[in-house]
């Protein structure tokens, strides 16, 4: 359907009025970050990809699991509904992957409390960035998987909803049906591939190359920082620790498999003491280990390439494995 006006901004105003916590791209200097906003003016949609991923809305960087004194005093849970507005196809797909991780097996109640009340409004991509490669992972950047999808094509705003929650949200908007020509335009738009990089994943080769010296070579300049994992929309590792001796909070925070402290045991044994082992772990996690869950855990957003201070490139590293 077609909306006359700024759909995303109007959607934010409605969501805020409906009592949602709204996460949207917000401009900081010359770039955008996904963060919670309190008015439609704080959002800005003049971007291709925000620096951080939309996972902050469902998996915040820090959250309290338990408040304690002598014993447990409170277990906080998200009570409000949450909306992510302006998510791209890559980040939207990543949320589905996070769902698998946090909701299969043991159900993570904190994640669930946010996820079950989540509304996602995605925006189709008109352009790709230099390190985008989602298409080669089977994602159509022009047809994101979300509750509501917005595509801006030649000045027209197309809005569609595939899920019940999306459809019911759209009922509050004045939308008109597309005419024949517009339907054709949209169809063409969705079937046109964007020009972007491609990753070649050869699982058998990965399996054979695990002990290859190649990984030391790839990792030689790795700084063991957390940029790749913290910007990654599918990375889910976390730490739990207590803050406060007599009374305080048990906190969960993001953690990174690239930090040597992530796996360091009290005995001083560290199963991945070397940085090349940790980097290999991340690459295999994205393209090999997680196949047991049925998916690659990479959505081709390219953030880890754009912002790796060592210039390490997952597309090259995986495609050229030997």
């Amino acid at each position: 359907m077609i909306y006359e006006g700024e759909f995303l901004k109007d959607a934010i105003s409605k969501l805020l009025a409906d009592g949602y916590r709204v996460f949207a791209p917000s401009r900081v200097g010359d770039f955008h970050v996904f963060r919670e906003i309190s008015s439609a003016e704080e959002a800005d949609f003049n971007y291709i990809l925000p620096r951080n991923s939309a996972k902050v809305a469902v998996f915040p960087q820090n959250e309290i699991l338990i408040e304690y004194g002598d014993w447990i005093e409170r277990v906080p849970m998200e009570e409000k509904r949450i909306a992510i507005v302006g998510v791209r196809a890559c980040d939207a797909k990543a949320i589905k992957l996070l769902d698998k991780h946090f909701l299969e097996g043991f159900v993570d109640p904190y994640y669930k409390s946010r996820r079950e009340k989540l509304l996602t409004i995605a925006i189709a991509c008109n352009n790709a960035l230099i390190n985008c490669f989602c298409q080669s992972l089977g994602i159509n950047p022009r047809k994101p998987e979300a509750d509501v999808v917005v595509s801006e094509i030649d000045g027209r705003v197309f809005v569609s909803a595939d899920t019940e929650i999306g459809k019911s949200f759209l009922q509050g908007f004045n939308l008109r049906n597309e005419n024949e020509e517009e339907l054709e335009i949209k169809k063409r738009f969705e079937s046109e591939e964007l020009k972007m990089r491609e990753i070649r994943v050869d699982v058998e080769k990965l399996k054979k190359s695990f002990d290859s010296p190649y990984w030391k070579e790839v990792a030689i300049n790795c700084k063991s920082c957390g940029v790749c994992t913290y910007l990654c929309p599918t990375c889910f590792c976390f730490d739990i620790y207590d803050e406060g001796e007599k009374r305080g909070v048990r906190i969960r925070t993001w953690d990174s498999c690239q930090f040597p402290l992530h796996t360091l045991e009290s005995s001083s044994h560290n199963p991945r003491a070397e940085k090349w082992q940790r980097l290999r772990n991340r690459f295999y996690d994205k393209f090999y280990y997680t196949l047991r869950k049925g998916n690659y855990y990479c959505v081709g957003c390219g953030r880890c390439i754009d912002f790796c201070p060592a210039g390490i490139d997952i597309v090259n590293a995986i495609s050229e494995v030997r």
Binding site: C225, V227, F259, L261, L264, A310
Partner: peptide, 30 residues
């Protein structure tokens, strides 16, 4: 805005300590 990815520390040629005071536990453990 900082996400504490520690990239600033990791790339700094002078931040070479094995034991960093901002870490919650100690890499220099033996």
């Amino acid at each position: 805005r900082c996400i504490r990815c520690h990239a600033c520390r990791s790339v700094c040629p002078l931040c070479y300590c094995e034991e960093c005071m901002v870490d919650p536990s100690n890499l220099a453990v033996s």
